[in-house]
Design a protein around this nucleic acid. Structure first.
Lengths: 227, 227
DNA sequence: CTAGAATTAAAACGAACGTTTGAATGAAGG
DNA sequence: CCTTCATTCAAACGTTCGTTTTAATTCTAG
């Protein structure tokens, strides 16, 4: 009838735009990346973005959604698998951490585009743009909810507020680990741009996250004065 | 002779610009904040920024430098104090963590402007702008170097590369804890905007960081399969 | 083969950007 | 009192931004 007239080139143009936009967003940020840079790198006409996506804002969301939606789906299914494997036992904390952050690191390690996207995602979390924050919130809400509940079952002695804080700390550590890697390089001299950097980082990050997650609860109010 | 003609109003205007710029940078980011927004909020003329600072880039650096330079100085002197207190013994890891991140959290908890600045600083670490990254690198390099050495002495069994990674992870966790707090709120429902949020977060973050720092080293190469 | 929708192309739109200019302002120095 | 000089001000500079428009092109359905 009226659908899929020119499916080949249409998707081609869309994907070329998405690829170019993602790379430029990582390199320069959302605001500093212009439509002309995107369409120039993608080799398409300037008007193509507004034709295919409607606006730059929608394009930004679409770039994020393209990989974030599958990533969150895999995070969900990884937790499903872990819960299924545990039977009626609570899932061990390190399995939950691995389900969430393992999915992320696999995406980052799997391909250059995956690493690029995880870099972008890390930066996006501190992005002030309301439309971006709003989208991230809706996309993440169900995932965070599931994992919060899983952690609560796995660590019944830890208050839920404490679990949310530690989830937040873990998210921060991972985001920086992935997106701030060249700042690490610049600060410390550690080289990251080798292709297997993510693979070498993964066990280190996992160990760190688990150590933080299972750290003793802070004492009552203020002082945490233990050796 | 020729100095301090109208010192009062001169510094007044400069500081008004710095204050307004900092608040706007936190709310909208560097790129999305225009000179007209800054001068409008500061109640000064549009040309005042270029007159007092020369360019927007210099203003950005100056906003960061105003609080980062004292912060890093305090980080240095906190480590000095810890090393002096330890005598010829190596400083305990939790003292080093406290020297670095305690200084940060005190700044964040001390005043609204301090919290605002730490928020900005956290975001700035993932800022792609070359001039910002370059400034951050030069400002942080000596501090990171001192703390790396202190950690190496405190944890002689841990390879220096591992220490740098964990320092990076800790930096990420703290930056997110401070700057991504409204994203935590949006994701998890935890309220942060209360004035004593930083005070309540501090022991939690310290406990998490120490747990991560002292986590068992990841096994040889790939698998970290321990319960 | 042809009608018509989908896509690309080139050009221009108004708005906002960072910066610059040149005159007005106002307080010290001689 | 008049000069001096740092500062403020209003206005405009040229550039770039995201978006829109109009025409040409491509491709498919009947």
């Amino acid at each position: 009838m009226d659908v899929r007239r020119t499916s080949l080139t249409a998707h081609e143009t869309r994907n070329r735009i998405l690829d170019a936009a993602q790379a430029l967003f990582v390199a320069h940020g959302f605001e500093a990346t212009s439509m002309r840079m995107i369409t120039g790198d993608a080799g398409v006409n300037l008007a193509a973005v507004n034709y295919h996506f409607g606006s730059k804002d929608v394009l930004v969301r679409e770039v994020l959604k393209r990989h974030l939606q599958p990533l969150n789906a895999q995070r969900m299914q990884a937790l499903d698998a872990a819960e299924a494997a545990a039977g009626d036992q609570p899932v061990k904390p390190h399995r939950i951490v691995d389900a969430f952050f393992g999915s992320s690191l696999e995406l980052a390690a799997g391909s250059a585009a995956g690493r690029e996207f995880m870099q972008l995602l890390g930066r996006t979390f501190t992005e002030p743009s309301p439309t971006v924050r709003e989208y991230l919130a809706t996309e993440y809400a169900p995932v965070i909810g599931r994992y919060r509940d899983a952690f609560c079952r796995a660590l019944p002695t830890v208050p839920v507020e404490e679990i949310l804080w530690r989830l937040h700390f873990m998210l921060g550590a991972m985001s920086y680990a992935v997106s701030g890697i060249d700042s690490l390089q610049v600060l410390t001299g550690v080289r990251i741009d080798e292709p297997d950097a993510m693979q070498r980082m993964r066990p280190r990050l996992m160990s760190f996250l688990l150590g933080g997650l299972r750290a003793p609860l802070p004492a009552g109010d203020g002082a945490d004065e233990t050796t």
